[in-house]
Amino acid sequence: MEKVVADPRPAKQPWNKSSKLASFTGGRGFADATLITLAFLLAAVVFGLLLSVLWSVVSAGAGAMSPQFLYQNNRYISTTTSLDYGGVGHAILGTLWLVLLATMVALPLGLAIAVYLTQSQSKLRNLVRSITQALAGLPSVVSGLFVLSIISFLGAQKSGIFGALALFPLMLPTVARVAEEALRLVPADLRLAALGLGAPNYRAFFQVILPAAKSGIITALLLGLARVVGETAPLILTIQANNGTNLNPFDGGVATLPTYIYGFISAGYASSITRAWGASLVLLILVGILFITARLLTADKKKKKAKK
C-alpha cells in the first residue's frame, strides 16, 4: 500500500495567482475586491477621457489632412477657402523656430541650475530650488503679460523673439527639475573614483557625471519642449499672426500652431474650423513624438540598470 506522505511544501497561500478569485471572500477579501474594482473603474474613466480627446482630434482633424496641409503656408487663404489649398507648414516652422529659440536659453540655464543644485554645497541651494519650483507654477498667461509689458516699455513691435522670451520661463523649471533628478541619480562613487584618479572637479563632471546622466538630460530637454510647444496664451500676447512663412524673429509676425488653431477656430466657418482641428492633430503628433522619444530614452536606461 502506498504511504501518504504529507506535502512538505507550505500550504498554498490565498494570494497565490491561481486562487486570486477565491481570495475575494470574507471581510478582507471583500475590501480587496472593492478597491481593485474601484481602481480599474477609475483607470477606465481616465483612459476613456484620454481616448475621447484623441478621437475627437483625430476624427475632426483627419478631414484637413493632406500632404499640402503639412507643407504649404496660408498666403492667399481666407477663412472660407476650400481645404484643397493652403496648410500649416508656416506654423509648424514657426512653432519649431520659437521653441528652438526658447530652448537655446532654457537648456543651458536649466542645466546650469541643475548642476548648481547637485554639485555645490552652498546654502543658497534651497533658495534657488524654491524659486525654480515657484516658476513652475507660473501661469503661462502671466509670462505672456510680463513680456507684453516689456514690449510696450521698449516701444517695440511684437515679434518672434518676444514669443520665445515668453516661452522661456515656462520651459526653464521643467528642464532644471528633470535634469537635477538625472544628475542626482548618478552614484556619488563615480565622482569619487574620478577625483581619486587625479581629476579636477570640472573634468570629473564633464567626463564622468554628465555622460552617466545623458539620457536623463535628453529627457529633461524633451519634457521641456513638450511643456511649451502647445502654449497659446503667451504667444497670442507677444507675437503677431502671419499667413506666410517668416523666420526672422526680430521683425514681423510669425505663425505658430497654437495661435493658428486659436485664430481659425475663432473665425467660425466650417472650413476654418476643420483647419484648426487639422492643426491640432499636427500639434498632438508633435507632442506625441516628443513624449515617446523621452519614454524610449528612459526605458533604455532602466533596462541597462536591470541588466547590471
Binding site: L190, L197, G198, Q207, K214
Partner: peptide, 25 residues
C-alpha cells in the same frame, strides 16, 4: 585609491576605463 564597491565608469568601455585616468587628469 581603490574603493570598497567596484565603481568602474558605466559609460566607458573596459579599455576606456583603464585609460580614463589619463583623460581625467
Amino acid at each position: 585609491m581603490v574603493f570598497q564597491k567596484p565603481n568602474p565608469f558605466p559609460t566607458m568601455s573596459i579599455r576606456d576605463n583603464v585609460l580614463s585616468g589619463l583623460k581625467l587628469s
